[in-house]
C-alpha cells in the first residue's frame, strides 16, 4: 500500500502551495466541526445550548449530561441510560467479529490454496452477498429468527451479523492469501503437515495484518449497524445505535440536546477508538476491500 510519502515529481509555486494548505485546513475544519460541536455542547448545561451559541465554549462546564446519558436518560420507556445498550452492543459485536473473521480466514485459505472447480463461482456468490440491500432479507430473516426462537436476543443478532459478515471477511482473506506464496503450502505438504496444520502453523501466524484489518472492518460495521438492530432486537435487547436513535428521537418531554450529544459520542467511542489505535490498518483494509476481487 502506497500510503507512505512518495517522491512525487509534481512541483508547484509558493502561492499555490499556500492555497493548497488553506483549502486543506478548511476541509479539516469541515470534518472536525460536527464532532467538535457535539463534544463542546455535551459539556454545557441545557440553557446554554438553547439560549446560546453552539460554537461557544461552555461557561459552566458540566459532566452531568454524560452521567445522564450513561445511566439515567429515558430510552424508550425505561430510564436506564445507554449503559445496558452499550453492553448489548459489546456482547453482540465481539463474538460476531471473532466468528466471522475466523470463518473468513478458513474460507480464504480454501479458496486460494486448495483451488477446485467452481471456487471462483462460489467466491463470486459470496462477494455479491456483501452488496445486497439488506432489505431483501429482512422479512425471511425475521421469520427464521422467530422459528429458531432467538428473535430479539443477542444470539439472533450475532447470527445475523456472522451470516452477512462472512462475505467481506472472506474477501479480505482471499485477497491476502492470493498473494501468499503457494510454495510455502507445498513445502509444508512435503514436510507432512495436513490441511489444518498448514492453516494453524503456516498461514495464521503470517496473517496478523489482515486479521487486524478484518476485525476492524467487521467491528465497525457490526457496531454501527442500525437496520438489523432495529428490525430484530426490541426493547431491552437493542444495540447502542438503536438506543441512541430512541434517545434522540423520543418525542416526549424537553429535548436534552447535551445528553443527546454525550450519547452520540458514547456510541461513536468504540469505533473511533479502534480507528485511532489502528487507523492505518483500517485505511489499508478499505483499499483491499474496495472490491479488488
Amino acid at each position: 500500500m502506497a500510503m507512505a510519502s512518495s517522491d512525487n515529481a509534481v512541483r508547484s509555486s509558493n502561492f499555490t502551495r499556500a492555497l493548497i494548505y488553506l483549502v486543506l485546513i478548511l476541509f479539516a475544519l469541515f470534518y472536525l466541526l460536527p464532532f467538535g460541536i457535539m463534544l463542546v455542547n455535551s459539556l454545557k448545561p441545557l440553557e446554554e445550548i438553547t439560549g446560546g451559541n453552539m460554537i461557544a465554549l461552555p461557561q459552566n462546564w458540566t459532566i452531568a449530561p454524560w452521567l445522564s446519558a450513561w445511566s439515567t436518560a429515558q430510552i424508550g420507556v425505561q430510564p436506564t441510560g445507554l449503559r445496558p445498550y452499550f453492553i448489548n452492543s459489546i456482547v453482540m459485536a465481539v463474538p460476531a467479529v471473532a466468528i466471522s473473521t475466523f470463518v473468513g480466514a478458513l474460507n480464504g485459505y480454501v479458496l486460494t490454496k486448495w483451488h477446485f472447480r467452481g471456487a471462483t463461482w462460489i467466491f463470486g456468490l459470496l462477494l455479491f452477498s456483501c452488496f445486497i440491500p439488506f432489505q431483501i432479507v429482512l422479512i425471511p430473516m425475521a421469520r427464521i429468527l422467530g422459528i429458531l426462537n432467538i428473535s430479539g436476543t443477542a444470539y439472533g443478532l450475532i447470527l445475523v451479523h456472522v451470516v452477512y459478515g462472512i462475505g467481506f471477511s472472506t474477501l479480505y482473506f482471499r485477497n491476502y492469501y492470493a498473494v501468499f506464496p503457494t510454495e510455502l503450502v507445498r513445502a509444508a505438504q512435503i514436510d507432512g503437515a495436513g490441511f489444518f496444520q498448514i492453516f494453524w502453523r503456516i498461514m495464521l501466524p503470517s496473517s496478523g495484518p489482515i486479521i487486524a484489518v478484518c476485525c476492524i472492518w467487521q467491528f465497525t460495521n457490526i457496531w454501527n449497524d442500525f437496520l438489523f438492530g432495529a428490525s430484530f432486537a426490541s426493547g431491552g435487547s437493542a444495540p447502542m445505535t438503536v438506543a441512541l436513535n430512541n434517545l434522540v428521537n423520543s418525542s416526549t418531554g424537553v429535548r436534552e440536546y447535551n445528553v443527546h450529544f454525550a450519547g452520540a459520542i458514547m456510541a461513536a467511542g468504540p469505533t473511533l477508538l479502534v480507528y485511532i489505535v489502528a487507523g492505518r490498518y483500517f485505511v489499508r483494509g478499505l483499499m483491499a476491500g474496495s472490491v479488488k476481487g
Binding site: 470534518y31 460536527p34 454501527n224 441512541l244 434522540v248 459520542i265 456510541a267 461513536a268 487507523g279
Partner: peptide
C-alpha cells in the same frame, strides 16, 4: 486521519450531529 475519521462513525451518530447543527 481528520478527513477519514467520519467513516468510522455510525450513520446514526452522523445523523444526530447534523440534525442539531
Amino acid at each position: 486521519p481528520i478527513f477519514l475519521y467520519p467513516m468510522a462513525l455510525s450513520f446514526i451518530v452522523t445523523g444526530t450531529a447534523w440534525k442539531w447543527m
